[in-house]
Nucleic acid binder design. Structure first.
Lengths: 325, 325
DNA sequence: TTGACAGCGTTACATTTGTCAACTTAAAAT
DNA sequence: ATTTTAAGTTGACAAATGTAACGCTGTCAA
């Protein structure tokens, strides 16, 4: 059924997007109702089956990008156009974030596409999160059979689309490459448990691959009740508070750092299963930042010296530039 | 102006397609009217600045494709979904053709994209026409700095978008590769003139590149008053008639052939400046067919032995399969 | 100078699309 | 066998989109 359904979606997408038929015509040709076609098309876009791409080569480097690049000593900085959301009320905030995720996801996907087509074989490390998820959705039309995608951290318990497992799986499927991930929880229950977990043979092997990544895509989390980490129940309210006490301002892959980008001294950092800062420093790391909530964490992380490239949404870029040194 | 305009178009496209703002919002953000944004977006799609792509990998090989492939001894055959235009009245015929051109163009662009990303450097020969034009429009998001694009035929006098010059130029621009073309008319005024033209050094050099192409994309023309060749005034009504007398049923790149796919014995074939059948036979040749009008010519050309791969629209594929052996 | 002309804004209107609630069917679960 | 669920259909409606008519303004060439 699912396969059948997929084929139908492809046909509908062809009729509508390539053929330029309207939804009514499309429905008639496929023997469906317009409402169904409408939903299928929406799903097709959402799932990344059809993807729109913009020939962005035509716009030069924005001055803002260059400013951020030099200020943080990066190899490159890519900013999406600013959407200019100042006016917005509280209720739109989810929508705004969603837009930022998508925009940065598209930009990141484009960048990854370039990397994949320029290098025959590539080992790509990835983090997790909604921005990363969007990146996987908008990566379309690249064949990279020799590419390897490896999660640089453990997995969530809930099986969300932004779970490392899903991320790696989706990337591998879309490119025809191979996907690897760490088959262990993201945050172990105790330091001793972590030792057991990371000593598993398959985990050791996966971590080895991760450490040899040609490039890593990571994102940052803010440290509030609204953060994804908190909402997913990966950390408790008490833990969050104690992290704050320890000076933490954000996390990447479950590693918590202070405003200077140093890993904080906290028990949680001992339980996280992911590549640490020292390991990341040895790799080319690209940081994806979407949303104003993230700029504190972004600045800290950029100061840490682990980041080599930044992909950020226009609004956050402006805010970050405006943040004092 | 044009550059400014382009940048505006890109920004509008970002807001609308990536950001998901509606046209009114987009207009407000850019300080324009909605009507203008609407037109800009339409232009952006038409010019190929934004392009939608469908992850076609999810549909398997259609039985029809396989039938055509084996029947004509091809390496591969790609068919777009059939749009199923039977019912249509005469006035829609231009619309129908346009849809077919686009569909085949998209499929061809996808194929070319794959080729470019799999081979680091590639020399791509191209013909001319509306299908080829569409192929260039839908080729987006590939960087292939080492690719070379070469027209395998002379140019038109009128500077249309489907002129070999434009085709090659567009391909080169979109991929960052290099474009070459034959700076001579497509059909010389006399056999003697042709001799002079093709002896020009730059022409000799370009033909040399063409003969070394890694792959050639060609299309076919039917031999009626409605054919592009005739409409562009490249051949006169009298010439068309005499070609018919000589047994010709179609052309590719201005070379006329009979229903068995043999070059007809006609003065025009002596005046055409393009790679001939013998030269094409030495190269991997992909034939693009869009529209029912072309199936006679397609069958003939497929019989000639010059074609290695076929990309065809679904309706024409059905009709071609139904045509007797 | 002036008149043709292209580009754009404004407004109005037709078409298309997105969405919802109520109803039907078919399969899955109990 | 009956209840739940999931998925689709239908009809209706609001929102978004595509188009066209008209007038203003600046440019360019006669």
């Amino acid at each position: 059924m699912s396969e059948d359904d997929d084929a139908l979606m492809v046909r509908a997408a062809w009729f509508y997007y390539v053929g330029g038929l309207n939804q009514e015509m499309t429905a008639a040709r496929l023997g469906l109702t317009r409402a169904r076609v409408n939903k299928m098309l929406a799903e097709a876009r959402e799932s990344g089956l059809v993807s729109i791409s913009i020939d962005h080569r035509r716009v030069g480097v924005l001055p803002l990008e260059d400013r951020l690049r030099t200020r943080f000593g990066l190899d490159f900085c890519i900013s999406t156009p600013a959407f200019g959301f100042h006016d917005t009320s509280k209720q739109d905030s989810e929508v705004r974030k969603q837009i930022a995720f998508r925009a940065v996801g598209v930009a990141a996907a484009n960048h990854l596409k370039t990397l994949l087509s320029e290098n025959d074989s590539l080992t790509v490390g990835t983090g997790w999160g909604r921005t990363i998820e969007q990146m996987t959705l908008h990566l379309a039309g690249v064949r990279a059979p020799h590419a390897r995608f490896i999660s640089i951290m453990g997995s969530l318990t809930a099986n969300n689309a932004y779970n490392p497992f899903e991320v790696v799986h989706s990337l591998a499927r879309r490119t025809g490459g191979e996907g690897y991930f760490l088959p262990v929880p993201f945050i172990a229950d105790s330091v001793d448990d972590k030792k057991v977990l990371i000593s598993q043979r398959s985990v050791v092997k996966a971590l080895e691959i991760a450490r040899s990544a040609s490039v890593c895509f990571i994102s940052a989390g803010e440290l509030t009740e609204e953060s994804l980490l908190r909402r997913q129940g990966m950390i408790s309210g008490t833990e969050l508070e104690s992290l704050r006490q320890a000076g933490a301002v954000g996390d990447t892959n479950g590693i918590f750092f202070d405003s200077e980008g140093r890993q904080v001294d906290h028990e949680l950092n001992e339980r996280t299963i992911a590549l640490g800062f020292e390991e990341l420093k040895a790799l080319p790391v690209l940081l994806l930042i979407a949303g104003l909530e993230k700029i504190q964490a972004a600045r800290a992380l950029l100061r840490s010296g682990v980041v080599n490239g930044l992909i950020i949404d226009g609004d956050a870029a402006e805010a970050l530039a405006a943040l004092g040194e």
